[in-house]
């Protein structure tokens, strides 16, 4: 199990084409904590996630993640392999690590059961609804028992009710302690407040951290949580922080 936290120290990232995605990021994410990152579209939230995943490298400053930490990611568009069955998708990360086929199959079955996918284990992704596909995506990530799970706006493309269900699912999984250190990128403030204990607010591009909020919300069902005055207060605080950034971006006409 990974012990070291994720530490950004004055980290920045400028793409070769000159676009500055991240600037002066200093952030420590404690082991086994649940952190959400919110900010206007195109602010570099996803880039931040990709640096943790090891898919991008910071160009200035440093980022340290324990070298032996297993990382898994859940993508906005699912990015399941269309040519693999649900079972093969779920056990993909096990298969690449040389786990025997029978065991892969067994783990896939266990995770499919857990995600309510048992009837679809032999289906192909295109036969599933968007919500089901994301369940497979989450199962694929958690099946490898990752130390770090990165969520990249996983529910942005789902309808409102399915999104609620999926948020509940993530909260449940977290309570069961299978999500390790969780970093959850979203543009929905309420979603951030529901799935995470700590919320990082980022500015318009280049992404900087403009607020770091830890609202003290009790661990109650989502519906109750949403009705709490503290929830609404935190929502208003975060919105106040982001609002000007979103407006700025709108006027600049940046995506």
């Amino acid at each position: 199990m990974q012990a070291a936290p994720i530490v950004f120290a004055q980290a920045g990232l400028t793409y070769p084409n000159g676009v500055e995605a991240l600037a002066d990021i200093s952030l420590t994410i404690a082991t086994r904590s649940a952190v959400a990152v919110v900010g206007p579209s195109g602010c570099g939230k996803t880039t931040l996630l990709r640096t943790i995943a090891g898919l991008e490298r910071v160009s200035t400053g440093t980022l340290s993640v324990a070298a032996d930490a297993t990382r898994a990611m859940v993508f906005q568009s699912g990015l399941l392999f269309p040519w693999m069955s649900v079972a093969d998708n779920i056990s993909y990360g096990l298969m690449t690590r040389g786990v025997p086929l029978a065991q892969c199959r067994e783990r896939a079955r266990v995770w499919a059961d857990r995600m309510g996918l048992q009837r679809f284990i032999d289906a192909y992704p295109h036969q599933l609804s968007g919500g089901m596909q994301q369940r497979v995506g989450i199962a694929r990530a958690l099946a490898i028992q990752p130390d770090i799970v990165l969520f990249d706006e996983p529910f942005a493309a789902l309808d409102a009710q399915t999104r609620l269900l999926m948020q509940e699912l993530v909260c449940d999984l977290q309570r069961q302690g299978v999500c390790g250190t969780m970093v959850f990128v979203t543009h929905a403030i309420d979603e951030a407040l529901i799935v995470a204990d700590r919320i990082i607010v980022m500015s318009a591009r280049p992404g900087r951290i403009i607020a770091d909020i830890t609202p003290q919300l009790p661990d109650v069902p989502i519906a109750e949580k949403r009705a709490l005055p503290a929830f609404n207060q935190a929502f208003a605080d975060i919105w106040a922080q982001i609002r000007s950034e979103v407006e700025l971006q709108m006027h600049e006409g940046v995506r």
Binding site: F75, L79, Y92, G93
Partner: peptide
């Protein structure tokens, strides 16, 4: 992006060829 997913989930070159 499929190659990226494969790499993220630990696939080496040969596995990437076969599975992606």
């Amino acid at each position: 992006r499929y190659f990226e997913v494969g790499r993220l989930y630990g696939a080496n070159q040969r596995t990437l060829f076969r599975t992606v």
